[in-house]
Design a binder for these strands. Structure first.
Lengths: 205, 205
DNA sequence: CCTACCGATCGGTAGG
DNA sequence: CCTACCGATCGGTAGG
């Protein structure tokens, strides 16, 4: 009677997660095609052949990682928990929460870039089909209940919000690797969020 | 007396460019590590060994492509040509010019993503060291001559502008591959630019 | 600029 | 879950 609850994962499930954890680290450091099954096996503490008891192929490992480690599962509840009386406060808090979480787990952004760069977004489409129906309502609710918004189309608001976070994260990667960090002020996140906020809010707000 | 002018490139230089053109197409389709030297040779119409008369290694081809094909060389003069009486008109036109150019040559964005995903931005730093001193003055001039701006720091303005274009291009890639194109309105670029514009401009403008 | 080759490494599997 | 192996392909080179 092996229990299949969250609290007591099967040994096989544990090994599977160990493989995924090893794989995601290597993917992020090197990309997908530059990472070999032998490297994943070594990092996970298995022999090469052992991996194939848990995954049919290297591609299947990547797919599993994309699904299991994707940020929106963590982020959605965090956004919904975000507080603030005015919309400005609410969205400001939500943005900071999202970027803090993504920055602490740089996994996600990098993984997304790998997906686009090496797979032309092939897995991404399937993911969005799953995630979008859960994310859109959050923005629909915001549009309905907040009258201070200039942007009244939920999909446009969602796109602009995700785009703003993405652009901050990516320019942050670029800047931190270059000489631009000397010329860039320190409180960039505040300035960035301020521009966005001013962009979507009515002037009276 | 072989002339070395732009009008009459050496045969060797022509072959070198042919190799670069073949390589960039393959890189964009498959990424860097998934592209083989044999594929590049085939597409360029050479035997494998012939490539090594022009490039020492696969990595050197990628570096050459990054330098020679980078968009800022084309984009900088286009931005400077952008017209418009008000800042709103000027930036609106500049944005459309940039995005039109990048969309018609999807090379660039993809190449940048490959650079980050597969090289951790290693080549990018060197590039920015060259490009930043040429781009910053453009934004410095805008900040100085336009009083309608809320954003007064040139580097912040540059970052937000590049970030806005990047986020539009990347979300466009994601959306066009997914079911989201059904729920997304058609004139998204206008809405996107409008949010940004409203974000950086003073309310009186 | 091509032909023919090198050693190394790849993803994956058979068999236990 | 490991050992030992497979054919295929990789980046790169020697020699002409």
């Amino acid at each position: 009677m092996t229990a299949k609850t969250k609290d007591a994962p099967t040994k096989g499930e544990a090994t599977r997660l160990t493989i995924e954890d090893a794989a995601i680290e290597l993917f992020i450091e090197q990309g997908y095609h530059a990472t070999s099954m032998r490297q994943i096996a070594d990092k996970a503490g298995l022999a090469l052949g052992g991996i194939y008891n848990h995954f049919k192929s290297k591609d299947e490992i990547f797919e599993a990682v994309i699904v299991d480690k994707h940020p929106y599962k963590k982020l959605l509840p965090l956004i919904q928990q975000a507080e603030g009386e005015t919309l400005k406060e609410f969205l400001g808090n939500a943005t900071r929460i999202v970027i803090d979480e993504l920055s602490s787990q740089p996994y996600y952004i990098k993984l997304m870039l790998i997906e686009i760069a090496e797979f032309n977004g092939a897995h991404g489409a399937a993911f969005i089909k799953e995630a979008a129906p859960q994310m859109l309502p959050v923005f629909e609710k915001i549009v309905k209940t907040r009258k201070e918004l200039r942007v009244t189309h939920p999909a446009v608001l969602m796109r602009s919000f995700i785009g703003m976070v993405l652009s901050y994260m990516i320019t942050e990667i670029i800047i931190s690797n270059s000489i631009l960090n000397k010329v860039m002020p320190k409180n960039s996140l505040d300035a960035y969020v301020d521009i966005y906020m001013h962009g979507i809010l009515k002037e009276s707000a």
